[in-house]
Design a protein around this nucleic acid. Structure first.
Lengths: 344, 344
DNA sequence: GTGAAAGCGCTAACAC
DNA sequence: GTGTTAGCGCTTTCAC
C-alpha cells in the first residue's frame, strides 16, 4: 500500500511491484519492446496489469516520446453534413495508420480557429488539419511557422507556405453551369452562396459569372446567406420575395440546397420542371431530398487520404492538390424523372 | 543555443533563460499564479515567450496536474444529425466551464466503443460521455469501476451503477401515437425503427405496441433498418413492397424519416394526406423536409447541461435523469398545411 | 533477460 | 518577488 500517487491511479510502478519485476520490464511488455521479455515474466506482468486494472498514462507517454499518435482537425461547422463526412473520411484514413483524430469546431470564428490551432498544437498532435474559415495571410502566418505540420483542407487554391487540398471548385461550378445552361437551355441562373467558403472571390461565383460571360449574357440574381438549411431557405425566400427568381439556381452547398428546395416547394414551384437546381458537395443526404439533388460531388475519401500524406511527408515543400469533382445528375436539375433509380 | 530538447520545441527553460529569470517565474506568469510576479518581470517574460514563440506543453502540464480540462465524448454515429447537435450542445456547455471536448466515433461497434473509452480514459480526461451502443451489463461494467467518471447519454432508463440521462422516450412515442391515432382517426400505425437505439425492448416500440393495446387494436407492421437516411428509405420500400403500408407511420428517428419521406414520394404517396408520419428527435433539419417532419423533440441543451453536472458532481450516487420531450407538430402528420409558418 | 536511472516539460512547495 | 528542486508516469540507454 501507500504506493498510489496523487491521482489515485495505478501506475507502472504498482504493476512492477505486484509482478515482482522492474518498471522497465513492465514497459517492455506494454510496448512489446524495445527489449525482449521472458514469456513467463511477460505473462506475470500481464496478469498483474489485469489484476490492478492498469491503464498506461497517455500523457506521460506522450511527454516522454514527444508525440502522441494523434492529429487534430479543426472544422468550421459540424452541422454541415459535408464536413461531417469529411471528418469521417479523415478518421478512417488516419485509423489505417494507427492515428487518432481529435476534432474541434471553430464555429467559423477566426479567433476561435487560431486558439484551437494553438491548443491542439500544444497538445503535441502530430499534425493539424484546418478546414479554415479565414483566408487572411496574417492569420494563417502563425500556422506556417508554427511547430506542427499543418494542412489546409477544403481550399480551392494554393496558399503560400502551407500545403493544402481541395476540390477544383471552379471546374465543378462550371460543370454545373454548363449543365444548367446547355442541357436545359436556361438563360438565367441564380446563385445562392455565402462568404467564408472558398475565399474571396469564391471560385464558384467566378465560374458562375464566367458562365454568363461565355454565353454573352448578364449574370442572374445572387442571394447571400448562411451555409445552412436556414440560410438556403432564406436566400430562396429573398429571391422569391423580390420577384427575381431566375429560371434555375446554382446553390453553392448541399446544406443550403435543402433549404432552397423547401422554400421552392412552399412557393408551389415544381423544382425539376420550373426551376432546376444544381448544388455543390455531393453529400450522402443530398440523394434523399425531393427531388433528389443534382450536385457536384467532392471526392472526400481521396482528399482525406491525400491530406494525410501531405501531413506526413517529412520536409516536402508546401503544395496544393486540386481534386477533380464529378457532377452527379439526379432529379433537381430536371434531367431525370424521380423514380428512385439513383439510390445508393 | 544548444538548449533545444529532443522535440526541437521551445520549453519553459528556454524562455526562462531568454528572460533572465527562473523557470518557476515563467510558470507563474503562464498560469497567473500561484505566486505573484513583478509587473516588469512579467512583461519581460511575456516578451520572451512571444519572441521565442513559446507554446506550453499540454501533456507535461496534464501529467503534472493529473488532469487536462478535457472531457471525452463517444458518439455512435456522427452522420446522424441528432448526434451532431448533441455534440455541439455538449461542447457549448463544456466551454462555459473552460472544458474542452474530445470526440470519437465508435461507429456503433461495442468493441470500438470499449477501446475508445479506455483510450480516452488513459488520456486523463476529466470525464467521459458515452452515447453507448451496447446495453450489456458486462460491457458497461468496465466503465462503472473505471477510473474516469462516466455518464451515459441518450439512455431511456437508469443503468445500474452509472449515471445517465436521456429523453422520456416512452412518453414521447406515446404522444406520437396518440397524435396519430386520436387526431387523425388512424387505425393502423406502422413502425420504422432499428435495434441498438434505446435498448431492447426499445421504449419507442413498447409505446407503439401499447398504443394499439389501449385502442384494442392489433399492432401495425414493423420495418427494421439502419438508423440512417438509407435505412429509413429501405424500411419504407419494404413496407411498400410488401403491400403492407399502413395508414400512418411512426419513425423512430428523424434521420430515418428523411429516407422514409423520400420513399413515400417515390411511390406517389402524399405523405400528409395519405400516410401521416411522425418521427423522433426533433433535429434542426427535420423542419426542412417536404413535408416538414412532425417530430418528438429531445431537449438537447438541457440534457447536455445536466450530463455535465452529473459528471462533475463529486461522489454523488449514480442517477438517471429522464427529460420530458415535446411533440413538434409540423406538416408530415397532416395537421397543418405546408405554408412555411413553422420555420425557425 | 532484467534493472537502475536519467530525463521528457511542467507545477508548486519550499527556501531565500 | 524570485529561485531551487522534487516529482507527475513513462521510455530507453546502459549496466549487469
Amino acid at each position: 500500500m501507500a504506493s498510489r500517487k496523487q491521482s489515485g491511479r495505478i501506475t507502472r510502478e504498482d504493476v512492477a511491484r505486484h509482478a515482482g519485476v522492474s518498471t522497465a520490464v513492465v514497459s517492455y511488455v506494454v510496448n512489446e519492446g524495445p527489449r525482449g521479455v521472458a514469456p513467463e515474466t511477460a505473462a506475470r506482468v500481464r496478469a498483474s496489469m489485469r489484476a490492478l486494472r492498469y491503464q498506461p498514462n497517455f500523457n506521460a507517454r506522450a511527454l516522454k516520446r514527444g508525440s502522441n499518435q494523434t492529429i487534430g482537425l479543426i472544422l468550421r461547422d459540424s452541422l454541415n453534413p459535408f464536413f461531417t463526412e469529411f471528418y469521417l473520411a479523415i478518421e478512417r484514413a488516419a485509423a489505417e495508420q494507427g492515428l487518432r483524430v481529435v476534432v474541434a469546431d471553430s464555429h467559423g470564428d477566426p479567433d476561435m480557429e487560431q486558439q484551437l490551432a494553438t491548443e491542439l498544437s500544444s497538445r503535441q498532435v502530430e499534425g493539424l488539419f484546418l478546414m479554415s474559415t479565414t483566408q487572411s495571410q496574417e492569420q494563417l502566418a502563425g500556422l506556417r511557422d508554427g511547430i506542427v505540420p499543418t494542412v489546409l483542407l477544403d481550399r480551392p487554391a494554393p496558399y503560400p507556405g502551407l500545403s493544402s487540398i481541395g476540390p477544383d471548385a471552379y471546374a465543378g461550378a462550371t460543370a454545373a453551369m454548363e449543365h444548367l445552361m446547355a442541357m436545359h437551355h436556361v438563360a438565367s441562373v441564380g446563385l445562392i452562396i455565402n462568404s467564408g467558403g472558398f475565399g474571396d472571390p469564391d471560385p464558384r461565383r467566378v465560374a458562375w459569372e464566367d458562365g454568363f460571360a461565355n454565353a454573352g449574357l448578364a449574370p442572374g440574381p445572387v442571394a447571400v446567406n448562411d451555409w445552412s438549411n436556414l440560410g438556403g431557405y432564406r436566400a430562396a425566400k429573398e429571391l422569391l420575395g423580390n420577384g427575381t427568381l431566375p429560371d434555375s439556381l446554382f446553390v453553392a452547398s448541399d446544406h443550403q440546397a435543402v433549404g432552397v428546395i423547401r422554400a421552392l416547394h412552399e412557393a408551389g414551384i415544381d423544382v425539376a420542371r420550373d426551376c432546376p437546381v444544381v448544388s455543390f458537395d455531393g453529400t450522402l443526404s443530398s440523394a434523399y431530398t425531393w427531388p433528389a439533388l443534382t450536385s457536384v460531388r467532392q471526392p472526400v475519401e481521396a482528399m482525406a487520404r491525400q491530406a494525410l500524406e501531405l501531413l506526413q511527408d517529412p520536409g516536402a515543400s508546401p503544395m496544393h492538390h486540386a481534386f477533380a469533382v464529378e457532377l452527379i445528375v439526379r432529379e433537381s436539375c430536371g434531367c431525370v424523372l424521380p423514380d428512385g433509380q439513383d439510390r445508393q
